[in-house]
Amino acid sequence: MPRTNDVGGLDGFGPVVEELDEPPFHHDWEAHVMAMNRALIGRRIYNLDEFRDAVERTMSHESSYYENWFRAIRTLLKEKGVV
């Protein structure tokens, strides 16, 4: 069964909405999540494939992109007994 993230060709997600002059991050915490993830991968707490897998299995279409990232990071840290 395809995972939730596998949306290619599906209908029903509405029109594409473009935000003009969009900043790289909309909130400071999003930048922190991105940097935290790179640092944890850099420290080999988990690797990029594990992170990608965690995003794909824990993501929600109701959450924003970086909310999904944060959920994946917390899931991995919990599973690995780090926190």
Binding site: A31, H32, M34, A35, M36, A39, I73, V82, V83
Partner: peptide, 24 residues
């Protein structure tokens, strides 16, 4: 929540705020 997790990881020595600045 992000601040809390960051503080926890920092306390465990797993991340360094200066390193996060450098990443960004």
């Amino acid at each position: 929540q992000v601040r809390d997790l960051e503080a926890l990881l920092e306390a465990k020595g797993l991340i360094d705020p200066r390193e996060l600045d450098q990443v960004l």
